[in-house]
Simulated assay, not measured.
Amino acid sequence: MQTLPSPNLTPTNTPAAAVVINRLNHFYGTGNLRKQILFDITLTLQAGEVVILKGPSGSGKTTLLTLMGGLRSAQSGSLQVFGQELVGAKKRQLIQVRRQTGYIFQAHNLLECLTARQNVQMSVELHDHISPANAKQQALAMLEAVGLGSHIDYYPHNLSGGQKQRVAIARALVSRPKMILADEPTAALDSKSGHDVVELMQKLAREQGSTILIVTHDNRILDVADRIIELEDGRLL
């Protein structure tokens, strides 16, 4: 696999850890209905690393992903993201992590009332320090990078499945997040479109020095990973 440049790293330094997890446990429900989903998860993800997380349905993959992304509150153990401890974290800390993370899901979750450019631009506009003009410029540049420069004014219903996923990838990457979390990003795509989408995500994220975690059942994309880990019954194998 070709090594792509990562401008945020220097050859003489060991990449910093983006995520450090130690004996993380997670439960759903309360009282007699309380059920443990994750058991003593210990895992480190390095900056610029592409990791694929595999496992059967119901094994806890999406739960782990949402905990890492600050979309769900971590309960016990230790979960450090970008140096911040998320177990017991305040809402403000979780929001900080979300603002540094790009999310790509199986359902592209584009807003049907917005064009491709507007869907991507909206992600940049969440950052107060970026002007509307600059947000638009960044959105256009990212859509060009994902091969949709001629589709900027298309609404989602006029785009193919692969094109919608490219818009979703552009939206996730446009604000240059430190981490990309992708949950089954290729499940609805054919083999070529799926591989193209993941290779594109890999290339753009590597150029930005981001960490990528891809949750997938798709064996066709395993070759893009630096590392493959497996989760079964809430435990890392």
Score class of each variant (00 low, 15 high):
Gln2Phe: 07
Thr3Arg: 09
Pro7Gln: 07
Pro7Asn: 06
Pro11Tyr: 14
Asn13Met: 14
Ala17Ser: 13
Ala17Arg: 10
Asn22Leu: 06
Arg23Phe: 10
Arg23Leu: 10
Arg23Ile: 02
Leu24Thr: 03
His26Glu: 06
Gly29Ala: 08
Thr30Leu: 07
Gly31Glu: 04
Lys35Phe: 01
Lys35Ala: 09
Lys35Ser: 13
Thr42Tyr: 10
Leu43Asp: 03
Ala47Trp: 00
Val51Gly: 10
Lys54Asn: 09
Gly55Trp: 00
Ser57Ala: 07
Leu65Gly: 13
Met68Trp: 12
Leu71Asp: 06
Ser76Phe: 05
Ser78Met: 06
Gln80His: 07
Phe82Gly: 01
Gly88Arg: 14
Ala89Cys: 15
Lys90Asn: 13
Val97Leu: 14
Tyr103Ala: 07
Ile104Thr: 06
Gln106Ser: 11
Gln106Ala: 12
His108Asp: 09
Cys113Trp: 10
Ala116Cys: 05
Asn119Thr: 03
Glu125Gly: 03
Leu126Trp: 10
Asp128Lys: 07
His129Pro: 02
Ile130Trp: 03
Ile130Leu: 09
Pro132Met: 12
Pro132Tyr: 10
Asn134Ala: 15
Lys136Trp: 05
Gln138Ile: 01
Ala139His: 12
Met142Leu: 00
Met142Val: 01
Glu144Arg: 02
Gly147Thr: 02
Leu148Gln: 11
Tyr155Met: 03
Pro156Gln: 06
Gly161Arg: 14
Gly161Pro: 08
Gln163Arg: 06
Lys164Glu: 15
Arg166Pro: 04
Val167Pro: 09
Ala172Asn: 12
Ala172Met: 09
Val174Asp: 11
Ser175Leu: 01
Lys178His: 13
Met179Thr: 04
Leu181Cys: 03
Asp183Ser: 04
Asp183Ile: 02
Glu184Leu: 05
Ala188Pro: 04
Ser193Lys: 03
Ala205Gly: 07
Thr211Pro: 02
Ile212Cys: 09
Asn219Trp: 01
Asp223Ser: 14
Val224Glu: 12
Ala225Leu: 07
Asp226Arg: 11
Arg227Met: 13
Glu232Ser: 07
Gly234Pro: 08
Leu237Glu: 06
